[in-house]
Nucleic acid binder design. Structure first.
Lengths: 181, 181
DNA sequence: GCATGGCTATCTACCAGTTGATAGGCTTTC
DNA sequence: GAAAGCCTATCAACTGGTAGATAGCCATGC
């Protein structure tokens, strides 16, 4: 089935937010992106916080689906697949993680959006924690936080340095600190 | 001597940007913060890109001054001092690194501002690279990128998770991956 | 001593454009 | 006929930015 208008709006919003931030995105931008009027966007998402919440929600559940498809039999290949999820966003879409930017803007954002961003990070940490515990990685709690932070920060540093290869460099170093080759 | 109006404006701008982002900050906000009218803010900084550039410039040179005061005799204590620089911003000022948020917003920001943000990250990487090379750390290039990314990302994850202690956890794990205790 | 003139820093008043949001009307589909 | 999905038209508030006036300061020159 073809994508619903609701999804098309969320697609446009995701692209814009990941590029320039939540506060830099307007209903009129989205409207012209999908070919309707701004009043019609309000029909689908009454307020901007509503839109933000739906956006992070969808992003998180899509990310979760990808996580569930990762083969966790080997620590090394599981981590490689995990990193690839982030890397794709940076290289293919030429944008950073939605929650990296919404996390950075946090203080100026509606509270309901902040809660969803927080949940995204927690989900990531929990997935890694489980992986690390099952593989006997030392200090699994600290390490899972470190990996999430390194990848989120890596996207920001690499994209703002206009050096996509730097992300891979960072990811490689992060993995090496866990899995001794 | 008392701070000039220019500095007071930059102080207010820094606080607001680090809280909610560059695009969420307006000339009128700053004006009311420092007790003048928005037209007078334009007198000191003609356009918003001008203000952004001056802001990141000042931030970078202040950070550089702090870096130069760090005693680099011991790798461990040097890294601890470096981390403390970031940690202070997060705990005392209750905000994240200026360049973390301006790096995240990058695509929607004026080019001159992006260049300055890029320069901030480069300065950090170079300082760490020198430290690592002089101390025989393996893969010094990759590792210096990783540390910057982990700390910048750590601020975002920790602040948006409303868990300041998480930053210390991340920093600790990052240092441990270099300096085996 | 003091008028002249330029400079700095602020003001009031305004502009055109954008923002999130609402009210009410028009189709199409079930 | 009613619900869904979109429209036009409009709103008040806010945006970055400009024009022109005003007040105080400080040097120059008579």
């Amino acid at each position: 089935m073809p994508p619903t208008m609701k999804d098309k709006i969320l697609d446009a919003a995701e692209k814009r937010v990941r590029g320039a931030g939540f506060s830099a995105m307007s209903f009129r931008d989205l409207a012209s992106d999908v070919g309707i009027k701004s009043a019609s966007v309000h029909y689908h998402f009454p307020t901007k916080p509503d839109l933000g919440e739906a956006l992070v929600d969808r992003y998180t559940s899509q990310f979760k689906e990808h996580l569930e498809q990762i083969d966790t039999a080997s620590l090394k290949t599981a981590l490689d697949s995990y990193v690839a999820l982030y890397s794709q966003a940076l290289v293919l879409d030429e944008t950073i993680c939605l929650c990296a930017i919404m996390g950075a803007e946090a203080i100026g954002l509606p509270k309901n959006v902040n809660q969803k961003t927080k949940a995204f990070f927690k989900m990531n940490r929990m997935w890694l924690l489980d992986l690390f515990q099952r593989n006997g990685v030392q200090n699994p709690e600290d390490t899972s936080c470190l990996i999430v932070a390194a990848l989120e920060g890596g996207m920001i540093v690499a994209s703002s340095s206009d050096d996509r290869a730097m992300f891979d460099q960072i990811a490689k170093a992060a993995i090496r600190s866990i899995v001794t080759i």
